[in-house]
Design a protein around this nucleic acid. Structure first.
Length: 574
DNA sequence: AGCGAGACTTGGAAGTATTTGT
DNA sequence: ACAAATACTTCCAAGTCTCGCT
């Protein structure tokens, strides 16, 4: 439930609101006054393998020390995964594994290819199988224990409200699996101890206790930030946090603010577009580059594209970091003129491939930017995200590159819903329309997924069901006809008619489902729904067409978007 | 301006729980 | 009642953007 002071139910910007919230928090940048929590749940300590599970090196049995064994089990657990066949993964793992070995182990184990982890791997497979086969009682016990931990560690108190914490467990040790071609894949992600952990809470709260015999790295009282716990991770050296659940007041308000910023962009986007079109003609190269980049961000919903440290991460790019090799220009392609072909790896190494006809002026500018450059050179050599965002900030308060993604995603949903929803169609048909509108956004944002492993089979199953339903329908229809000619009792006739109608409906629903699933094969809807689409658009749509809210948002989503469900009426306009 | 640290949002896959069909 | 299918949740990596420092 939305049990904290909700954002006011008005359609104004947060900063225009002069209610309690503004008075209490906004001016000095503090995020809370009181914060109390129980600290994190640490990863369970390592449990050595039972004696019968053996490790072999070069065909010979080798008993490993506990630290070496633990790291070996990380590898063994992943043995079935493609990862463990990759040279980089194996090399990085082996290097880090050696650091955990005794000097004796180090001298014996000299080649990862002679290591045999299969018994360990089999053991873990058997374990997980056994877990599945547990009795109801045992499963219930585990569930209850998890619930107890959730109740104890899963909540905190922030300013008089009990709030759900997002991730209250410290990440367990294991092998780092980067995405795409990551130079650090396979490295050991080390165990986080209390001594690595910084606690953030208010001075006057009951501080979380470290486990017996240990201490926290630090306990601080910083109310300018929202996190409860942090630690530094050893792969990239970056900081990880424990923060509140999306259902919390602090996240909800931030989310709301994000969409209000996007709505302010809506009001001035035409002005900005006119501006960057003008800038395509600028005398200054940096201005032209900025303007073309902004055009891409606006039109294609590209990400900003910060610079990345070479060799630290997979080689991926966004708009500002595009390189010459990522685009191709075609002054003519089929029946179109001035086509730009994009082909690059974006966030999470997901491929972005697109061909877009652009205006002549953009095309000419791109040709200019490409002059005398090598494939690995930056396309926009006079531009980076900091320059771009500084410019955007001058055009509109709070404007950054990512606001365009939010704006274009939300406006697309709204417009698609308008276009696709027909007033007299059934609820399942309306839901198909909704999903299609959602899909249009996911495609715009390039949210792709690997087709589910069971996709083909699940399509087949659905088709079988459809065929059966079809047969059932024609059979029932025949019966109805027969009944008519035989002048059967009229009430029997009526109920047959109803039966036909019901079966028709069921058939339609199945067909709808099949279409939806097919179209969704390689599209991931989750991210746009959760992060880009102003929930008030969906809430308004649901109210307008009397579609049950649960068909669009599940429980978690309804909790996250409680503010919007509260706020939006059917006439809401993004 | 350029940087690195820090804080916070966004991302798909994997794992788990629930529902469905038999 | 069971297993298969589907829906939901967790996991944790990888982005964006701000800020303080030089």
């Amino acid at each position: 439930m939305w049990n904290s002071p909700s954002p006011p139910a008005i359609k104004s910007e947060p900063e225009e609101d002069n209610g309690l919230w503004e008075e209490e928090r906004s001016t000095d940048g503090s995020k809370w006054k009181f914060l109390e929590h129980k600290g994190p749940v640490l990863a369970p300590p390592y449990e050595p393998l039972p004696g019968h599970v053996r490790f072999f090196y070069d065909g010979k049995l080798l008993r490993l020390s506990a630290p070496a064994e633990e790291v070996a089990t990380f590898f063994a657990k992943m043995l079935d995964h493609e990862y463990t066949t990759k040279e980089m993964f194996r090399k990085n793992f082996y290097k880090d594994w050696r650091k955990e070995m005794t000097s004796e182990e180090k001298s014996k184990i000299t080649d990862i290819n002679k290591c045999n982890f299969t018994e360990m791997s089999e053991y873990f497979k058997a374990q997980s199988e056994a877990r599945k086969q547990m009795s109801k009682d045992e499963k219930l016990k585990i569930k209850e224990e998890n619930e107890r931990i959730l109740q104890e560690y899963g909540f905190c108190v922030m300013d008089n409200h009990k709030e759900r914490i997002g991730n209250f467990r410290i990440e367990p040790p294991g092998l780092f699996r980067g995405r795409g071609d990551h130079p650090k894949m396979g490295m050991l992600k080390r165990r986080i101890r209390p001594e690595d952990i910084i606690i953030n809470c208010s001075k006057d709260s009951k501080h979380p206790k470290p486990p017996q015999g240990t201490r926290w790295k630090e306990v601080r009282h910083d109310n300018k930030v929202t996190w409860l716990v942090s630690w530094t991770e050893n792969i990239q050296g970056s900081i990880k946090y424990i923060m509140l659940n999306p259902s919390s007041r602090i996240k909800g308000e931030k989310d709301w603010q994000k969409y209000e910023t996007a709505r302010r962009l809506k009001k001035c986007v035409e002005r900005l577009r006119a501006q960057y079109r003008e800038d395509w003609k600028s005398k200054e190269m940096r201005v032209r580059q900025r303007a073309v980049a902004l055009y891409f961000i606006d039109k294609l919903a590209l990400r900003a594209g910060n610079e990345k440290e070479e060799g630290e991460t997979a080689d991926t790019v966004g708009c500002c970091s595009l390189r010459v090799e990522h685009i191709k220009l075609y002054s003519k392609m089929d029946d179109q003129e001035y086509v730009v072909e994009f082909d690059f790896l974006g966030k999470d190494s997901i491929r972005y491939y697109n061909k877009m006809p652009v205006e002549k002026r953009v095309f000419k500018n791109l040709q200019l930017f490409l002059e005398n450059k090598q494939p690995e050179d930056d396309l926009f050599d006079r531009l980076n995200t900091s320059i771009l965002n500084k410019h955007l900030q001058e055009l509109m308060d709070g404007l950054t590159a990512k606001v365009f993604r939010t704006y274009n995603a939300s406006i697309t949903l709204q417009q698609q819903l308008k276009e696709l929803t027909s007033p007299d169609e059934s609820i399942p048909a309306k839901i198909l329309s909704y999903n299609r509108a959602n899909r249009a956004v996911a495609i715009l944002c390039n949210h792709q997924r690997a087709a589910p492993k069971t996709f083909e089979k699940s399509m087949q199953n659905l088709q079988t069901k459809i065929d059966e339903k079809q047969k059932q329908l024609s059979a029932t229809r025949k019966q109805l006809k027969g009944a008519k000619t035989e002048h059967k009792a009229s009430h029997d006739d009526r109920s047959k008619k109803k039966a036909v109608q019901r079966i028709e409906e069921q058939l339609m629903k199945l067909q709808m489902q099949a279409t939806d699933r097919e179209e969704n094969k390689q599209i991931a809807l989750g991210t746009s729904k959760l992060n880009y689409l102003d929930p008030r658009i969906s809430v308004a749509w649901v109210k307008k067409w009397d579609v049950p809210m649960e068909k669009i948002y599940n429980k978690t989503q309804r909790e996250k978007f409680a503010w919007a469900i509260d706020m939006a009426e059917e006439d809401y306009e993004f």
